[in-house]
């Protein structure tokens, strides 16, 4: 990895380098995020995919320094470029600092799988939204109210003036998700981190929310970091994809390459294991051997080697592969490619 491009391009909104987030537990240290590099270009949607335990959510929480004890960011930088020469390394900020609080919610908004993790039962939707707006923007109460109603309208909530005074429990799951999106976008963030935003929703509601996110992106121009295990959602939404396995990025490329020319055996196996609409006559599914190892017993060498069908016996068990750059936008962490690309 060359450091020459580091933050040099103004097209890069977020630049994550060597991020390590560990959890120190009695049973041992869990290396939830173990040396992750990727960049988020301005105004695009980047997908972070992987199965449970791959570290995708911890990566997102690290970006906002929301990792709670016993978890800790051990190493690495998370550089946010808010425009011009305004670069700030979030990983270096104090987790209580005013500067970080301004980034959370203002520059970076976040939505979760379960809306009730970010909405309080005890306060009305309007109260929570205006509070967030007034925290980050220098506006009067009435202005904040107008802004909140405008955002509720933008996310397609019918009768926003009435819903402004509703409590979250009075709303359906899809409506709550919309409220959370409205809240996350109310301060016009440059990056929206969406952690499994549609996983708990039904497929027709999911379609509504995905459509909404695409519309809002066109309108407000924010970048979206979409964290999901659903390859269908990734294919529909993202232009760039990061595939994670056991805390590492194993492959990164544009969406078409990931789905049509994947190079890491894990990406290939993942794509072969899912049922696809209209393809059910093509025979049995091809599952990946075994399951994701438990985090205390991380395999040596390449973490995927015990499940890999293309293992180079004698090498993959011991050698931890480096990142190989196959072309400017395509990287893969696998010995099969290290051999050929040196």
């Amino acid at each position: 990895m060359s450091n020459k491009t580091h933050g040099a391009s103004t097209d890069i909104l977020l630049d994550i380098r060597g991020l390590k987030t560990y959890f120190h537990l009695d049973e041992g240290t869990v290396r939830a995020v173990d040396g992750v590099d990727f960049t988020v270009p301005r105004g695009t949607t980047i997908g972070i995919v992987g199965e449970s335990g791959c570290g995708k959510s911890v990566t997102a929480f690290s970006i906002l320094q929301l990792v709670e004890k016993p978890g800790r960011i051990e190493e690495g930088s998370i550089v946010l470029n808010t425009g011009g020469q305004n670069r700030v390394d979030i990983a270096a900020l104090d987790h209580d600092s005013e500067e970080l609080r301004q980034i959370r919610g203002k520059d970076i908004g976040m939505i979760f799988q379960e809306p009730m993790t970010s909405l309080s039962m005890m306060y009305t939707v309007g109260f929570q939204m205006t509070e967030a707006i007034r925290l980050h923007m220098d506006v009067e109460k009435d202005e904040a109210r107008d802004r909140a109603i405008e955002m509720l309208q933008a996310v397609g909530i019918p009768r926003p003036e009435q819903r402004f005074d509703a409590y979250p429990f009075e709303l359906s799951g899809g409506m709550r998700q919309r409220v959370m999106i409205a809240m996350a976008l109310s301060c016009d963030p440059m990056l929206l981190i969406a952690d499994e935003p549609t996983t708990a929703l039904d497929v027709t509601t999911q379609a509504q929310i995905l459509e909404l996110m695409q519309q809002l992106q066109e309108e407000f121009g924010m970048a979206i970091m979409l964290i999901t295990h659903d390859l269908g959602v990734v294919a529909e939404m993202c232009s760039e994809v990061v595939v994670m396995y056991l805390g590492e990025v194993v492959e990164q490329a544009d969406v078409d390459t990931i789905f049509h020319n994947p190079q890491h055996p894990y990406t290939q196996a993942l794509l072969e294991s899912i049922p696809r609409l209209g393809h059910s006559h093509e025979g049995r599914l091809n599952p990946i051997l075994g399951s994701v190892p438990d985090p205390y017993h991380r395999p040596s060498g390449c973490p995927f080697h015990p499940r890999c069908t293309q293992i180079i016996t004698g090498r993959c068990e011991t050698v931890h592969p480096d990142i190989s750059r196959l072309d400017p936008r395509h990287t893969v962490r696998c010995l099969l490619h290290e051999e050929s690309h040196g």
């Binding site: 509601t205 459509e211 294919a235 529909e236 969406v255 899912i274 609409l277």
Partner: peptide, 20 residues
């Protein structure tokens, strides 16, 4: 509404209004 795991098959979603 089912998302297809293929960017070349982005389907024309019929987005239903409202909730169940």
């Amino acid at each position: 509404a089912v998302p297809r795991p293929d960017p070349r098959e982005r389907s024309q979603r019929i987005v239903l209004e409202g909730d169940v």
